[in-house]
Design a protein around this nucleic acid. Structure first.
Lengths: 198, 198
DNA sequence: GCGATGACAGATTTCAATATCTGTCAGTCA
DNA sequence: TGACTGACAGATATTGAAATCTGTCATCGC
């Protein structure tokens, strides 16, 4: 058995994703995961203390994959306003793509995330930090006027929640979505703008 | 029987609210409503074609009650920016109060509203119109710079969704809620601001 | 020794029989 | 006549017994 390969947390996560994809969140059991790996379910419990922690690890992996392209934009150079806009539009695009590509898997991960709220909170904090980083750049460049970058970053995150929080995913098929995003981003960027030098 | 009073849609709605309050949404049946009114359930079906339409009517009543105080603010006179801020803060306060006063009834109405999405859409449209009305006033007064009042009103509605949409009700107990609202409103108001005359 | 196993107790889920509800309508009563 | 009733068919919800799952641990084999 066991395919002559060591059983690693990584392999278990892989198998868990498979099982989730095949059976859906509600029906995926750790017995299924063990079966997919051709080991007893006791072995899985050697690497993860509980089903919840296994799911949490899967959620974390998923969120980290979402994070990567955004972090790159946040760290880039160039004018902050354009970068902020690109960052936000990229975030929206990533989420909207996930929903339209595989709605079933999206709801699976959504429910997964609701359970692993600690991981999600850390993820959100990371995103807000990225926005704050861009805002700070803008202040240095003189293009943004912001007293508390962190607080303003949170405000940006809050203000755009309609377009990135999964709770609103059903509304993302609105044909006016693009326009609504345009108007909101214009409003926010104007609100952040530093007064022109004379 | 029947308490010597005519059976009106109004009385049925009243009784339905009672039943919802006592049994909760999942267990409230039209048989229960009929029992509360001391009539047969067939009589209820004389006034409402289905259970769904009865629930829809209850949802509509509820939303109309929420709407009243806001409409008053929207129609008032005075500087638009202050009025917009008051309108938004009032909307948040109404929702937040509902949640903290009677969380159980709130979730009941929330689920009710999810089912009666047509009624909710009309309600939302009404709210956006109210914002648009305030924005138009601001443009006339020269305090707001806005090209499309309706589109901007929607943007304001979208941007504040975190603080009024029931999907985010769990986060309303955040101790930093007031600060987050302050920062967001300041950002939005600055974004709407018309340039000062020289 | 170390990773894996499989039997086990208690918790959870499934499933099918049973009960209740929704919506209709022919008939009652005032 | 027209508001109301109550019996009915089909849909939905409840229930409790049986099956499955989670998490533990004494034991096995390398």
């Amino acid at each position: 058995m066991n395919e002559n390969v060591v059983l690693t947390p990584e392999r278990i996560l892989e198998a868990t994703e498979d099982v989730l994809r095949r059976f859906g969140l509600a029906k995926a059991t750790v017995v299924d995961v063990a079966r997919a790996l051709d080991v007893s379910h006791g072995s899985v419990y050697r690497h993860f203390p509980s089903k919840a922690s296994l799911r949490e690890a899967v959620a974390k992996r998923w969120l980290e994959r979402l994070n990567a392209p955004l972090a790159k934009i946040a760290e880039a150079s160039g004018p902050a306003p354009a970068r902020l806009e690109r960052w936000l539009r990229t975030m929206f695009a990533i989420k909207h793509k996930k929903v339209s590509d595989d709605p079933e898997m999206f709801t699976t991960y959504l429910t997964l995330a609701r359970e692993a709220c600690k991981v999600v909170k850390a993820h959100k904090d990371g995103l807000v930090d990225q926005i704050a980083h861009i805002l700070s750049d803008g202040v240095k460049q003189g293009t943004f006027q912001v007293t508390d970058a962190k607080a303003s970053a949170r405000a940006i995150f809050d203000a755009t929640i309609r377009f990135h929080h999964p709770a609103h995913a059903e509304e993302w098929s609105d044909p006016q979505l693009a326009t609504r995003i345009d108007v909101l981003l214009a409003l926010l960027l104007k609100g952040l703008e530093a007064p022109r030098k004379r």
